[in-house]
Design a protein around this nucleic acid. Structure first.
Ligand code: FES
Ligand code: FES
Lengths: 177, 177
DNA sequence: CGGAAAGGGGACCATTTTCGTCCTCTTTCG
DNA sequence: CGAAAGAGGACGAAAATGGTCCCCTTTCCG
């Protein structure tokens, strides 16, 4: 239960249903991992858990989980505790963790094109560009959207889903593997 | 006015301001081109323009513009006219063209992870996944956000920007180069 | 005080995507 | 019937991602 192709969720085969090839907004697999990990941590809120334990419990490869945790910590989403009895803890409530933050921590802040963040000197065809840096409009919209969804929303729907779909789901999230 | 590194806008150097490396939601350069091209077309709404003309007027490499136009056409955003006097025309009003559509045409429909579109058989660790296919929540949020911004919003702000920033901008968008 | 458990932070390499180009075929107007 | 577009797809180079590994620092425990 570790080496699986396609990440935590099915990134599966090249192209399937989609009209074109890639899906738009293909949020990096890292973000996906991030949510998986955080969701799991949310269950033992406040408790200190080691990277190893988490990798076991999520079924994700250990090195990757470690990396993910480091990034989430840097992003201020987790508290890290070094030393022998160390590990990570999620001190915030799931409702207080936005998807926006998660993604930002794992992939960098929201920004669709370069000109967005002030510096215009990168624009080669600046004078020709019909929109100048006005993807900002889009940026904001997306950012707001992402701010509005929380970790709680993601984990909560899991429960519902299990109930509504009437799936077996005897594993809850699996104790370890 | 053709070979410039970094696309229509500044995708510039590896990393600059951003907190982490890549910006989240790095909408493909194609999408960027798409907006540039459409913005330009919006100025001669309804008129038939050739791919070549557009490449001249936008300063973007001709083959790329051609490709972009083809995709936009497939996506139903443009009308194509084949044959000798052919070209492309934007028949819809800029206010009726959503960013969502543009991106969808150029990169495929909105979908963050695979499980989103029904088929669950792609999920290797399905039973372990703490969120199942519930990125959908996020998907919708983003989709809605993107639906709410139109081509008009992007081109319009350009005018304002020029005024507000008090830039020279004697080129408007440049007649050709 | 010393050793073992963690985490911090990168370097690195292998894939996977993206992108930009080109080539050939079809349509349509003159 | 021939030239001017567009359609569509094949390819190869380049860049972004993702996973792993390694070495350093911190902290607890004996
Ligand atoms: S946004 Fe920078 S030139 Fe278009
Ligand atoms: S979304 Fe498919 S297993 Fe998580």
């Amino acid at each position: 239960m570790v080496p699986f192709p396609g990440g935590a969720h099915g990134t599966a085969d090249p192209d399937r249903g989609a009209t074109a090839r890639g899906r738009m907004f293909k949020l990096s697999r890292m973000a996906d991992y991030g949510v998986v990990v955080l969701s799991r941590m949310a269950r033992d809120q406040g408790r200190v858990v080691t990277a190893y334990e988490l990798s076991e419990r999520t079924g994700l490869p250990q090195p990757t989980v470690a990396k993910t945790l480091k990034l989430l910590t840097r992003g201020g989403l987790l508290e890290s505790h070094r030393g022998t009895q160390g590990g990570y803890s999620l001190d915030r409530a799931p409702t207080e963790v936005t998807v926006s933050e998660i993604i930002a921590a794992l992939e960098g802040p929201v920004a669709l094109t370069a000109c967005v963040d002030g510096s215009d000197e990168n624009c080669a065809v600046e004078s020709l560009c019909p929109i100048r840096g006005h993807w900002e409009r889009v940026n904001e919209a997306v950012k707001d959207a992402l701010d509005s969804v929380t970790l709680a929303d993601l984990t909560a729907s899991q429960e519902e889903a299990a109930i509504n779909f009437g799936r077996p789901r005897d594993v809850a999230v699996a104790s370890d593997a």
